[in-house]
Design a protein around this nucleic acid. Structure first.
Lengths: 152, 152
DNA sequence: CTCGATTAAGTTGTGCGCGACTGAATCGAG
DNA sequence: CTCGATTCAGTCGCGCACAACTTAATCGAG
């Protein structure tokens, strides 16, 4: 309560510790750092892991669809996908029905990696140490914030 | 409630949209993107803006103290500070009492920039569109999460 | 006092992340 | 049908972000 009351009064402050944006920035990097040793075992970086999540879920997607799902530009995805392809986890091929579009799909090695990845979300969830209610509240607020910030 | 109940059951899921980590990653980038046009006016990037916040607050700090405040490595800060120094906003000098340490302080131009920066937190706060209670809750949960993830 | 351990800042290499841009394919108003 | 507008993937340049490492200065056990 004291904490919240103090933070409430901080709107418009230039103090670092008052800023929600800094809490967000620090939290995001701390989570990525926490993922690193787990993903090293799979030979993935964190953004590569997110791409693999989409592919495990959807099977085959265009670069554009990946960008929509992950909110990333093609200028970020193209080099990342090239590295995943070099690593033998995905293949890319132009779509016959629209030659502008590129279909990204898993190789057998990429599909196999899903099994090794199953332990990752549990380990991260445990490290975050939030109750299910806190986890749900955080997700809700972050989605709301993202939607507002993107629209405004 | 339905949303929360559905999310509660998602612990350990490999679905992208279930992951708190992705909500965090997307939110952090969306906020940084929202800052960009505002900070362009000041000639700053978002991490540079965070460094300036610390300097406006503290006056003079070592690179190590900046790293502690922002949770950034010297390998990130050193080139960033070099760019701020080239831009005429800060000066760096070895400390007499400990020649390993470097004191970072504002130039007059760097100090003057604070006035132009005052409008930034308000604009961002408005764009985020959270109630004061939601803002405080989000900050609380993000700090808790960061602390847990960093420790575990 | 001394010298191995620690600490501070910086360098290097790799991988994002995005704005600005390019070239090729497709769309669609007229 | 046509040609300007749009869409898609990709390249380029720059600035993080961090692991691994280097160099120089300080610390501290013996």
């Amino acid at each position: 309560m004291d904490q919240n009351a103090r933070d409430d009064a901080a709107v418009g402050s230039l103090l670092l510790q008052d800023q929600l944006c800094f809490a967000l920035y620090a939290a995001s990097r701390s989570v990525t750092t926490r993922y690193r040793p787990l993903l090293d075992e799979l030979g993935l970086t964190y953004p590569q892991y997110l791409v693999m999540l989409v592919l495990w879920e959807q099977g085959s997607v265009s670069v554009r669809e990946l960008g929509t799902a992950l909110q990333l530009e093609s200028s970020t995805l193209s080099p990342l996908l090239k590295r995943l392809e070099t690593g033998g986890l995905i293949r890319r091929e132009r779509r016959a029905e629209d030659e502008r579009s590129v279909a990204v799909r898993l190789t057998p090695a990429g599909a196999d990696l899903q099994e090794k990845a199953r332990a990752v979300p549990l380990a991260i969830g445990e490290a975050m140490g939030l109750t299910p209610e806190q986890d749900a509240t955080a997700k809700h607020l972050l989605r709301l914030l993202t939607e507002n910030v993107t629209r405004n």
